[in-house]
């Protein structure tokens, strides 16, 4: 039985090919095969959001996607947020609002927040909280994260 397959995909705008076993999740592929360790494993069953990435612009848990499913799809990770050396407004606002402490959940929050602002550029606090409820943060109590996202929306 052939254990590995070639997958052609686009990651952060770059056409990318990789070899993976069908049992490897997209998260494993990103981290272990492609060296993109920005996506984090916090639970590996879709309950913490630390591994969130965008797949064709849709927010997904990369631990709940098989690497082979990325074939012909577009993946965006935290590594692709800053463009030409300039931080994405969300990244900048997370820093300014002290919206991270340990930082492990930050990449996942940034992707969730980006998906939100792409979908709804002017969210209310309630909408931000709803959209981020699939991302766990144990350090901040969410206050400063929510403020950072609202501020990023305002300044966009």
């Amino acid at each position: 039985m052939k254990s590995r397959v070639i997958v052609s995909t686009t990651i952060n705008g770059e056409p990318t090919e990789f070899l993976c076993e069908p049992r490897q999740s997209l998260l494993e592929v990103l981290r272990d095969v492609l060296g993109l360790t920005g996506a984090k494993e916090g639970c590996n069953n879709g309950n913490c959001g630390a591994c969130n990435v965008l797949m064709d612009g849709v927010l997904v848990n990369s631990c709940l996607v098989l690497g082979v499913e990325a074939e012909s799809h577009r993946i965006e990770t935290v590594e692709g947020l800053a463009v030409n050396g300039k931080l994405h407004p969300l990244q900048q606002k997370f820093l300014e609002h002290a919206a991270l402490q340990c930082g492990i959940c930050t990449p996942g929050f940034l992707l969730s927040a980006k998906a939100l602002l792409d979908h709804n550029p002017d969210p209310s606090e309630a909408e931000v909280r709803h959209w981020l409820a699939g991302n766990l943060c144990r350090c901040t109590g969410y206050d400063k994260i929510v403020r950072a996202v609202l501020d990023a929306a305002d300044s966009a």
Partner: peptide, 23 residues
């Protein structure tokens, strides 16, 4: 005052190396 943290950019860009990132 409230300056930005020195490790901040590494952490918002996904570059910071945590335990499971060591290879």
């Amino acid at each position: 005052s409230r300056p930005l943290r020195p490790d901040g950019v590494d952490k918002v860009t996904g570059r910071a190396v945590y335990g499971a990132d060591v290879k």
